[in-house]
Design a protein around this nucleic acid. Sequence first.
DNA 1: ATTATCTATAGATCTATAGATAATGC
DNA 2: ATTATCTATAGATCTATAGATAATGC
Lengths: 238, 238
Amino acid sequence: MVPRLTADERRQTILAAALPLFANRGFNGTTTRQIADAAGVSEALMYRHFPSKEDLYVALHEFCCANTDVFARFIDNLTPSTSTLVHSVYFMQITIFLHKQTDPENNVNNVHFCRLMMTSLLDDGDFARMFIADQVMPWLDLWKACVATAVAEGDMLAEGVTPANKLWFTHHLAVMMAVTHLPERDVIPYPNKSYNLCDEAVLFCLRGMGLTEKAIASHYNPKAIQLFTQKFFKALNP
Amino acid sequence: MVPRLTADERRQTILAAALPLFANRGFNGTTTRQIADAAGVSEALMYRHFPSKEDLYVALHEFCCANTDVFARFIDNLTPSTSTLVHSVYFMQITIFLHKQTDPENNVNNVHFCRLMMTSLLDDGDFARMFIADQVMPWLDLWKACVATAVAEGDMLAEGVTPANKLWFTHHLAVMMAVTHLPERDVIPYPNKSYNLCDEAVLFCLRGMGLTEKAIASHYNPKAIQLFTQKFFKALNP
DNA sequence: ATTATCTATAGATCTATAGATAATGC
DNA sequence: ATTATCTATAGATCTATAGATAATGC
């Protein structure tokens, strides 16, 4: 028999066990038996903690966001500038796309998160909408301030693309890079991989946002930003 | 009782009925009963044409691509040039993302296709891989030739982003624009809609690819390209 | 004679619950 | 006394098939 845990501890273990199942097989592809087995408990106990499979699925989304405030932590340290904008674009690619590829620790959770997000978009979009509103929107203010500064300093073209869309397009590319890398076998025949691919995506976005080549040359040093980002993550999980 | 059709006709009606169901609810979310009902036949007849639900699902993907050679038709008419590159970027956004929004005829099929594609990426990626190889890869040659021409004529920066990635990143943004627009309620608070949003995405990509502002100014006229694209589609379905 | 189609149903899940048992905390 | 946990099972699907019937084409 299973060791006795408090209600809250058991809830967490069930959610943790359910996450990879729901993420990999979707709601209908996952059975309550599989979840119970993965959590090492009976289905009855699972139903004691979650009135229905649907309720468990909803709870899972909150559980999944519980410790996800990386974006908030990231922008906390920064003030509006062209450099901050460049760091933000890089950070977006790293956290959304590249951690999947390089960081064995974060890999798993990021992939699960990405899958839940896509599944939500194929469904009613509620989870995606909530996450965007809660975790990405706060970034938008800093982003706009950065764009304003960059334009004022002659680092960026003002016309053509709305400041908000500069964020969304950058975000979208990062997400899609993550998505095309979900299946085990390659789907897209990219000519390069890992950091090289990531660096190109960042450059594409910097240019897309209208940063001048001069500004890019002086603020975008992939190695340096990579180091900065690594430091940030070390400070986050010491 | 249902009117008698030939085996092939019945196959088609079943596939046509199954498409929106599988696209909207996924493989596990769709029951054989729902498919049979939607097709107006018995489940037994469905199983006579398709040995299993799995086989039907596989057949659906071929069915879905059967008439999808828009990309091939599009590049047939074009020769390598900076202008062709600009038209290609616009065409990509229009067909992948904006038809969903503006063209009531194509809307439905494009959305189904987009959903199947995303579902494939969440699964083994086989369908996505096949489609990319069959329908998008042929575009790549023209694309690279266009980039070479543009660089030679001083319209485009050569360094930083691989020619192939200029295609993939452009493609990815178009796909993600389509995906974020799948749910009925808005997920992303874009500051603009429809053609204005599309035009910004195109501009973002043109800049991202390293086209000079001068080249963009002389080759990117949204209204003109829109007209060109409309003509192309009229010629396609007269 | 062949083939498209149906009705009815088997057998396998799958969600959820009823009712019993064992560990904890006062 | 309370609460975490289990076994066993009901009731509802869900995929797939067996066997019968009616329309078509030679």
